[in-house]
Design a protein around this nucleic acid. Sequence first.
DNA 1: GGCTCACTATACAGACCGGTATACTTTTGA
DNA 2: TCAAAAGTATACCGGTCTGTATAGTGAGCC
Lengths: 191, 191
Amino acid sequence: MTLAARRVLEAAARLFYERGIHAVGVDLIAAEAGVTKKTLYDRFGSKEQIVVEYLADRDERWRAFLAQRLDTAQPTSAARVLAVFDASRAWSAKNSSKGCSMVNAHAEISDPSHPAYPIITGQKQWMLTLFTDLAGDITPDGAGHLSQTLMLLHEGALVAHGLNIFADPISHAREQAQTLLAAAENSAAKR
Amino acid sequence: MTLAARRVLEAAARLFYERGIHAVGVDLIAAEAGVTKKTLYDRFGSKEQIVVEYLADRDERWRAFLAQRLDTAQPTSAARVLAVFDASRAWSAKNSSKGCSMVNAHAEISDPSHPAYPIITGQKQWMLTLFTDLAGDITPDGAGHLSQTLMLLHEGALVAHGLNIFADPISHAREQAQTLLAAAENSAAKR
DNA sequence: GGCTCACTATACAGACCGGTATACTTTTGA
DNA sequence: TCAAAAGTATACCGGTCTGTATAGTGAGCC
């Protein structure tokens, strides 16, 4: 990726996230990136491709960020679940004040055959799988059930954060997750 | 509201929800409504006003739908909390297969001074207040805490439903809410 | 009958949309 | 050193965007 291409992607990412995908034109992206439209089209070919790379890049960054956080977390599965919420809180404070970019993109991309669609649904599926794997270590029988609850808390917290419904929803979700994990460990130990 | 205006609002509501607000032009709305642009502008004055009335109307319909469901629910607060989730499940099956229209609109409307902004945040605040009032009857000390958790489960379920993350997330949220309510009633009774 | 209101039909304005073409300059690496 | 790659600058394309203007039709109402 060339320097100009990187600047285009950075500008597009910021504008798409803050204003929405359809509300941002390629002329604006080029201007904000300090790049001509010629360069933009030489590198990306279409606006759609910029959208795809915006979401793919954001997905990749989030996974890398989360992986790093999980690596430094305590090695127990319960601690790692909580580390996901900690990572989301840190990530949201810096990059996601308007909520989840995948959810927001989904609001604008209706067609399931759009090339960005699998990126959006893929990230959510990946998160669910992550929760399911961790939950499986805690309560093998209730892994599906627990992971779905964690997913709802997590998604709900991101929405609540983006819409500013109440203060610090991600911490609240983390706390609730902690209660859930304790109960699951307790009931698994009894069995 | 005239007949033509109603047709415009119905067409706009469907198109805005399915394709996104910025992706739909007034020409298309007029064509789908079987109405000329002249009529459309005579009735609404601007596209922005159509957006505002679309969201306001949807908000009103949801509140009326929910109120009717709450009226026919068992009069206990716990049953009424669960009735909210039941209402959401029924509503989503019919009108909200792509998730919450307020959340989706928020993804496209960045400016807090946009006239549609207070409608979006207002509905979320109203829902939180509703949960808080009901939770207050169950556990006065923990009303804020419980209502926030219910809110996260509810919002998370709507997102999960819209993105099809897993099957029937609203029922899962309802079930989780039920567990929470039982625990809250139990701990309130002990005190 | 005459008046108003809601509506149709069509054309147009000016801006912006995504995308392309031509011509030229700068950077960079074998 | 020299050619390819990457970039700038600018003009343009057809189409669509929100919004307006002009002209006329039909129904209800006092």
